[in-house]
Simulated assay, not measured.
Amino acid sequence: MCVTNFSIRHMSHTFESTIYIHLAPFSFPLLYIFYTASMYCVLGIAMERFLSIAKNKCTNQGAFFGYILPILVFCSIYNIPRFFELRLVEENGVSRLAPTSMMRSDQYRCFLISANLFLTGVGPILCMCVLNCLVSRRLKGKGSQVTSRDKSASFLISGLVLVMVICHAPRNLLNIYELILKVYPKLSPPARWMSDVNHIFLVLSSSCNLLIFLTQDNVFRSLLLHKLGIYLYDRVPAVENTTKELTKIDPECALEAELKSKLNLLKINSTAE
């Protein structure tokens, strides 16, 4: 999506005039949906780590139904108006993209900038900071009972907060400046290069998040390398269940998986009886 909307169309006029103008009314909204979802997925991961440290009963809700599905539903609904911002018009036999009447509305622009600032900017950052503080307090309360996975979760959330604050600062500043322009229209609009810097930092944010997961989460790193065919441990025969696979990756996680499997077996047996 990013390549199509921000790269290829600037390098090929033919692509822009023949293909891009038909894709843009749909590709831009999808891009915003994926962007919003990526940010809230990071927030969801931080929430999951906090719940795991707090030993909350809401921890084991499942990745898809507990986090991914609600995030996708929210992001899709939130970005529905994006599908009505651009339209294809023809002038003198030449097709071009033009903003709709809704997009030209000052009220809609003000609402859009404000919503982006608080729901995809300041809001998630504040939530991440709060989660980071709560995790730190939990770990201090545990004292000597802090495990390596708890420390890893704390460093992971701290790294995500730092990256989010730095990489989303240009976007938040641009949104704030655009809101100021609504009050003081005589001010000069932001330069084009500011928008380009904003896009570069957003790409860096996604890249840095992956690096943080690789360095701070042993299970994530081991599973990723395992899927790529790279083994950091002695290779064993093909695993047949989750416990054996996790034993090769993380003993603590393997013990937890074994206990869960035994509890599931007890539930199945009691149901059968």
Rank of each mutant, 00 (worst) to 15 (best):
S205D: 11
N172Y: 08
V42L: 11
K57W: 11
S205Q: 13
M128W: 04
N175F: 09
P185V: 00
K244H: 14
R109P: 00
E245F: 06
F83D: 03
N175S: 09
A191E: 14
L211I: 12
D196A: 08
L30V: 07
N60E: 13
S270Q: 12
L173P: 10
F213G: 02
Y177P: 00
K55M: 05
L23F: 09
E16K: 08
R87W: 15
P251E: 11
G44Y: 01
L210T: 10
E252C: 06
I8R: 04
S158E: 06
V219D: 03
V89S: 02
A54T: 05
A115D: 12
S76P: 06
T18K: 05
A169T: 15
F26L: 10
F65N: 07
I157E: 03
I19E: 05
F111Q: 08
V3E: 11
S206Y: 13
T120W: 14
R9K: 13
R49G: 08
Q61M: 14
Q145C: 07
V203G: 12
P170D: 09
S207Q: 10
I249C: 00
L255V: 12
N79D: 07
L265S: 00
L43F: 10
L265W: 12
C127S: 15
A169I: 03
L88R: 06
T247M: 05
S154Y: 02
A191N: 07
R235Y: 02
I200R: 03
L174E: 13
D196S: 07
C127Q: 10
C41P: 04
R221L: 00
I180V: 08
T100Y: 12
V94M: 08
P25R: 13
C208L: 15
L246R: 04
G44Q: 06
L97K: 05
R104S: 14
Q61P: 01
N172H: 06
T120I: 04
L210N: 02
L263E: 14
K262H: 12
S158V: 02
V135Q: 07
L202I: 11
A46K: 03
L97F: 00
P190A: 15
C167W: 01
K260M: 13
L86N: 03
G66N: 05
S205K: 04
L204T: 07
L134E: 14
S12E: 03
N175T: 00
R138H: 13
D217V: 07
P237D: 10
V89R: 14
L23Q: 10
L204P: 01
L181V: 00
F6M: 09
K142V: 03
